[in-house]
Amino acid sequence: MKIIRAKDYTEMSRKAANIISAQVIMKPNCVLGLATGGTPLGTYAQLIEWYRKGDLDFAEVTTVNLDEYRGISKENPQSYWYFMHQNFFNHINIQPAHVHLPDGANLDAQAVCEGYDSVIHELGGIDLQLLGLGRDGHIGFNEPNVAFELGTHCVELTESTIEANKRFFESKEDVPREAYTMGIKSIMQARKILMVVNGADKADIVKKAFFGPVTPEVPASILQMHPDFILVLDQEAAAQI
């Protein structure tokens, strides 16, 4: 595990974007695993800026996202498909056919999950997986006590995750209760994993996840076992380590 400290969110985002851009430059046809949520937005903004300057080319890049709400179509403004296009894909030269997310509109969970695992396998696996960190230690939608050996699966979201995500919806009642997510097994098979964490409210879980025991009660703790895991965090998130 490599830990990179940054003074603030802006510097954290730039350092993470540096790692992703290096991956794209070294392997133009790489497979990037991407994440949604507020934390990666600064990283995406930095990558867009470098693309516009001509420093990056995403024409050959393929992406696979961690997760998608179940029961939501691509066109829904609350879908992760919509989020990723609004905040990243629409601003770079990635080919539409190279963008992959679980199909939230398809309610056949087995078909969606098996199909998504097949996509990742056919792509040759993920070169670099970007992650955020939930306040309870979840990664993707892998909530506490999920089995480490799971591939893509359908999950019922915990109350704390619903609470954290309600800011993106008109009301808490509008937040979907289920989601499709890459499993811990899928994430751990990525050749490189990059996690971005910011804010004082994440300091406690950072300590538990990366300086405590490896346990399904803290899903992110398994990342301690990955051979090429990079944690980039700001001063506030690093306060207890």
Rank of each mutant, 00 (worst) to 15 (best):
K2E: 14
I4A: 02
A6C: 07
Y9E: 11
S13I: 05
R14Q: 14
I20M: 15
V24F: 01
K27A: 12
P28R: 04
N29Q: 15
N29T: 08
V31H: 05
A35I: 15
G38Y: 15
T39W: 07
L41G: 08
G42W: 06
Q46T: 15
E49M: 04
K53T: 03
F58S: 03
V61H: 08
N65H: 15
N65F: 15
R70T: 14
S73A: 15
S73H: 08
E75D: 13
N76F: 01
S79C: 04
S79N: 11
Y80W: 13
W81Y: 15
Y82G: 02
F83Q: 00
N90D: 14
P96C: 05
A97L: 12
H100E: 00
L107I: 13
C113H: 00
Y116E: 00
S118T: 09
S118Y: 09
V119W: 00
E122S: 09
L128S: 08
G137A: 10
F141H: 00
N145M: 04
F148C: 00
E149F: 09
T152K: 05
V155M: 02
E156A: 13
E159I: 06
I162R: 07
I162Q: 07
D174G: 06
P176G: 08
R177P: 04
E178M: 12
M182S: 11
K185D: 11
S186G: 05
V196L: 15
V196Y: 03
V197W: 08
G199F: 02
K202A: 02
V206L: 05
F211S: 10
G212M: 05
V214C: 00
P216Y: 12
P219R: 01
L223V: 07
Q224I: 09
A238F: 12
A239D: 09
A239C: 07
